[in-house]
Amino acid sequence: MKNIRALVMLLVAAVAGLGAVAMASRWLMDRSSGMTAKVAVAAVDINLGQRLNTEFIKMVDWPSGSVPPGAFTDGQVLDGRVMKNSVLRGEPILEGKLTPVGTQGGLSAVIGEGRRAITVRVNDVIGVAGFALPGNYVDIIVSTQQDKGSDKGSKDESISKIVLEKILVLAVAQEVGRDETKPKVVNAVTLEVTPEQAEKLDLARSVGTLSLVLRNQVDTATLPTTGATKFTLLGASAPATASAPAPVRPVRAHYAARPAAPRDCIGVLSGVLGSVECF
């Protein structure tokens, strides 16, 4: 009899414990559900210029107090939007990383307002051994012949000069992904420039050879240079240009009247006539 009573007490205690655990678990779930929100994040790595669809997006629980500004709580509104920046898997998709509504995908979607994209041909040396990747900034150097003027005796001089600074690399070849860190040797690089810079760059590649100079991404300093010539490269001073000869001024002759030289005179008598002869 005592054993049955003990078993009943144990059974009642077990049921009560299970009920307490269930109630505590439900309370915690209700409390946690009120402290989180659904946020749209990238299901895979997404490159700039790509158009989003349901395969690129997943909804995850995010603490309500730390939802990033511009985050989306409905993944359906992102269908068809185009990325302006690259995002990694698990990273929230924010409004600031998207192009305006209605923008078509591709490289044209990531070109800044008032900017243009221009492609220049490069090789493994000009392209900084493949380290000029999308998202990097470069300077442009042109190597050409400097015009010395219209003098027939003067000769054009070789010069290398930085003509453009802090130019954004949009794409290398046909790739626009910015999350790559390995160098890629390609034959073309697409740069983002202003219309004025596009004109200067097009002229530079037609008159000389272009080279890319990789620069620090956070370095915004502009350093004006005079260019390097053969004489500055070797540490010699440039030869002085021959000055034009001074014009010859005409010499005006001044004539002064000279007094008549004194002469000797004698009187000559011829019959009854007389005369004076001077010599």
Rank of each mutant, 00 (worst) to 15 (best):
V125D: 14
G105F: 10
A109P: 11
D151R: 11
K166G: 05
V176R: 01
Q104T: 15
A173I: 00
L191Q: 00
V193C: 06
A173K: 04
G90D: 10
S154E: 09
A109T: 12
I162L: 05
T194D: 07
G127F: 11
N136M: 10
T119M: 08
K155P: 01
K182L: 09
R178Q: 15
K182G: 02
I111W: 13
G112L: 12
K161D: 06
G177Y: 05
E175N: 12
G135V: 13
Q197C: 02
I167Q: 01
G114D: 14
G96W: 06
G114T: 12
L88E: 07
E113W: 11
D139M: 05
G177I: 01
K166I: 01
R121Y: 06
T103L: 08
E91G: 03
I140Y: 05
I162H: 03
N136T: 12
Q104F: 10
V169L: 08
E196A: 14
K166D: 08
E165P: 01
I159G: 02
A129Q: 15
A132W: 07
S108L: 14
I159Q: 12
E192G: 05
F131T: 14
L94A: 12
Q104S: 14
V176Q: 06
G127C: 14
K155W: 09
E180S: 13
G153A: 11
N123W: 08
S158M: 11
E91R: 05
E192I: 07
I126W: 00
A173N: 06
S160M: 12
E91L: 03
V142A: 07
L191C: 07
V87W: 00
A129V: 10
A188V: 11
V176S: 15
E95L: 14
V186K: 12
A132Y: 09
L170T: 05
G135P: 08
G149N: 04
E165N: 09
V125N: 14
L133V: 09
V193N: 03
K148V: 06
T99Q: 14
T144P: 00
K97Q: 13
E192C: 06
L191K: 05
P92K: 10
L98R: 03
T194M: 05
E91H: 08
L168Q: 09
V142M: 04
R178T: 15
V142S: 09
L191I: 04
N187G: 15
L164P: 04
G153V: 10
T190E: 07
G153N: 13
P134E: 08
D156H: 01
S154W: 08
K184L: 03
V110P: 00
I140D: 00
E91Q: 15
R121W: 02
S143M: 02
E113I: 14
G127L: 06
